[in-house]
Design a protein around this nucleic acid. Structure first.
Length: 136
DNA sequence: GCCAACGTTGGC
DNA sequence: GCCAACGTTGGC
């Protein structure tokens, strides 16, 4: 089991949009590093759903339900999508501020590489983020 | 709304 | 193959 974090601007595509659909393909990734991360995703991997720009917080957990396949929104064969389904909404969103304030999370890509939209998360880091979501 | 960081493109 | 110009992302 691997762990990931994906970003979306809530104005463009929010957690609520995602849960309303129940399942959706994650399209529009046009960055090689992010694409490579998606290609490494396996069914059942856990994916943190992060709202960028406006909220700047992790809002929910999703699950990979279909591994990568060609992006149906483009003819360009370089790009792929995965299918994700919501698992649960976090009882309390974990803000970027909280993540930055926690020294155990100092090395996650969300902080180090702010422009990457699909990134791997270590299991320990995933656990820490969930503990922040559930403890407070 | 601004701008820093960074990825991509294209001229040479 | 280098690098300047340009576009985009996302935090502030």
């Amino acid at each position: 089991m691997n762990y990931w974090l994906v970003k979306s601007e809530p104005g463009a595509y929010s957690w609520d949009d995602f849960t309303a659909l129940g399942r959706d393909h994650w399209d529009g990734v046009r960055n090689y590093q992010a694409r490579n991360n998606m290609m490494a995703m396996k069914a059942q991997d856990r994916v943190l759903f992060y709202h960028s720009v406006k909220d700047k917080e992790v809002v929910g957990i999703a699950e990979v339900v279909r591994e990568h396949y060609p992006d149906p929104t483009t003819d360009d064969t370089r790009w792929v999508v995965v299918d994700l389904a919501p698992v649960e909404k976090l009882p309390k969103p974990v803000t970027l501020q909280q993540i930055k304030a926690d020294e155990r999370l100092a090395n996650i890509a969300l902080v180090k590489q702010s422009r990457l939209s699909v990134m791997p998360i270590k299991e320990e880091e995933y656990d820490i983020i969930l503990s922040l979501a559930y403890d407070k």
